[in-house]
Simulated assay, not measured.
Amino acid sequence: MIRKLYNKLNTKWMYSVFIMFCGFILSFFILRVPSEIAFNTSIIIFFISILIPLLFGLIRVFKKDFLAGTLQILSSIIFGGSGFLCLSIFLMLYPYDFFADNLEIPKNIQFEKPINLNDNLASGPNKITDKKETFFLYDGFQPGIYQYEIFLNKIEKGTVYLKIYEITKNQILSETDVANNSKMQVYNSTNELKRYQLKDDFTVYEGNWGEFYGSKIEIWFQPDDKKQKERKLMSKNYIIQGWQR
């Protein structure tokens, strides 16, 4: 049965290439369905559509049908590469994110919520009364985009930055983007709390607007003295959401 199917599909070398195009079209149509199963199915169909003509071309070459086999392999590589480029661009603009679909916020853990100040940190809690080092997370101008400020006692010169984890799986979120965009230079030679405010913002990409989940946010400090190891200063649990493309 498999042999008969192969003979029908591979009567002419361009037939399997045509099947590849059909697979591409089917894959892109399935991608429009907002479902993780549909997404995974679409990707599988896409790559199978490339592998079939490649495999058939190799079989032709093995059977010494060099011209047709070479044309089949080259066309599969060229059209498959073009299709992969289109898929990559499409996925960059893909509007669905299934990260938070099955996540639940633990009820036995205490969480805080980001302060919604519409990008206006000046109206935030710039004075604290308990004299303890702490930090506050702020909603940015869109869901999934955040800012923060930190209050520190005496500390050497260095850089603070954030690490954010999904709390049930301990999975780090948007590691490079968060670390780079949350950096602040700090230095406090006194024993009094000093306030440091992030001037820009950072983005958590995992999840979609309105899909809230629990996170653990850690403040890390890298001293300017490279002989000193970086260290974690503090952490809090926040309910957050991801930025929707």
Rank of each mutant, 00 (worst) to 15 (best):
I2Y: 12
L5Q: 08
N7V: 11
N7W: 10
K8R: 12
N10F: 00
K12N: 10
K12I: 04
W13M: 02
Y15R: 13
F18T: 09
I19M: 15
F21C: 14
F24C: 11
I25Y: 08
F29V: 04
F29C: 02
I30V: 13
V33H: 06
P34G: 00
S35W: 13
I37S: 09
I37R: 06
I37D: 05
F39N: 06
F39M: 12
S42P: 02
I43D: 07
I45L: 15
F47Q: 05
I48P: 06
I48S: 07
I50D: 03
L58A: 14
I59A: 14
R60G: 11
K64M: 09
L67S: 14
A68S: 14
A68R: 13
G69Y: 11
I73A: 05
I73F: 12
L74C: 02
S75W: 07
S75F: 11
G83S: 11
G83A: 09
L85R: 10
Y96W: 09
Y96V: 05
D97S: 07
K107M: 05
F111N: 00
E112I: 00
K113G: 06
P114F: 06
N118S: 11
N118C: 00
A122K: 13
G124M: 01
K132R: 13
E133L: 00
T134E: 07
F135M: 01
L137I: 09
G140M: 05
Q142R: 14
Q142W: 08
Q142H: 10
P143V: 10
I145Q: 13
Y146C: 00
Q147C: 09
Y148G: 00
E149N: 14
I150C: 08
I150L: 08
I155P: 00
K157G: 07
K163L: 08
T168E: 14
K169L: 10
K169M: 11
N170A: 11
Q171C: 03
S174W: 04
S174R: 11
D177S: 14
D177K: 13
V178N: 05
M184W: 06
V186D: 01
N191F: 01
Y196K: 07
D201A: 10
D201E: 07
T203A: 12
V204P: 07
V204Y: 08
Y205A: 12
N208I: 12
G214H: 01
K216G: 02
I217W: 15
I217P: 01
I217A: 09
E218T: 07
I219S: 01
Q222L: 08
D224Y: 02
K226N: 15
K227N: 15
K229M: 03
E230W: 04
R231S: 04
L233I: 09
